[in-house]
């Protein structure tokens, strides 16, 4: 089991900086960056690359009245935009998650509960919070698609790796997943899930009809 930090991959960070990551994944990566200032500094430098590339683009002529139209819209504008007040009941969440409403907690097996984060979906891909009690594991499952998980509290471990607060796990279709919580306190995670989770094993067969994740 490795104790190294798990940071976002360069490729996914590049997509994040470029704005091409799906919105649910972008929410989870933004949360990861909020917990990892050094990685966030790299993201900021990448956005500097984007700024520089924007400067170098061959300009495309705007409509003759474009500026007048924007100024007319600015005229009717009430002015500056106030920052939206925090929208949920979990003040301990990192800032990128504070602005979204949360659904009710739902039971998902012994020691496991989930609630929806009302962030933008992308097809089947959506953001959830997952809370698992110490010593418990999620029902064994494989992934229908990409799963990105960021640890917010506590820690969990898979067969080969350990994930602590701030760590990001990037699981693909090939990953067989059976994380177990190894912290003394419950483990709280935010995840972007794509597709249905297929539960397997005897526990999964019992829960599958009831669990719509």
């Amino acid at each position: 089991m490795t104790a190294a930090q798990h940071n976002v991959s360069d490729e996914r960070l590049l997509s994040y900086a470029a704005g091409t990551l799906s919105p649910p994944e972008a929410v989870v990566v933004a949360t990861h960056l909020a917990l990892r200032p050094r990685v966030a500094a790299v993201a900021r430098r990448l956005q500097g690359v984007g700024g520089r590339l924007l400067e170098e683009l061959e300009p495309q002529a705007m409509q003759p009245d474009a500026l007048a139209r924007v100024l007319a819209r600015a005229e009717t504008d009430s002015g500056r935009v106030e920052a939206a007040p925090p929208a949920n009941d979990m003040p301990g969440l990192p800032e990128p998650l504070r602005r979204y409403g949360l659904g009710p907690w739902r039971w998902m097996g012994p020691g496991v509960r989930v609630r929806d984060v009302h962030a933008p979906r992308d097809g089947d891909c959506r953001v959830i919070l997952l809370e698992i009690q110490p010593g418990r594991q999620t029902p064994r499952h494989t992934h229908g698609g990409v799963e990105l998980t960021c640890v917010l509290e506590g820690a969990y471990a898979t067969e080969i790796q350990r994930f602590d607060v701030g760590d990001l796990e990037e699981a693909g279709e090939e990953t067989l997943h059976q994380p177990r919580v190894v912290s003394d306190a419950p483990c709280l995670c935010v995840a972007a899930l794509d597709g249905q989770i297929l539960l397997d094993g005897w526990l999964g067969r019992i829960f599958q009809p009831f669990v719509k994740l």
Binding site: P23, A26, V27, A30, A34, A43, R44, Q47, R99, P120
Partner: peptide, 10 residues
């Protein structure tokens, strides 16, 4: 789109 922070996150 998610309202990602214009203050560049961190």
């Amino acid at each position: 789109a998610p309202e990602m922070s214009l203050a560049l996150e961190e």
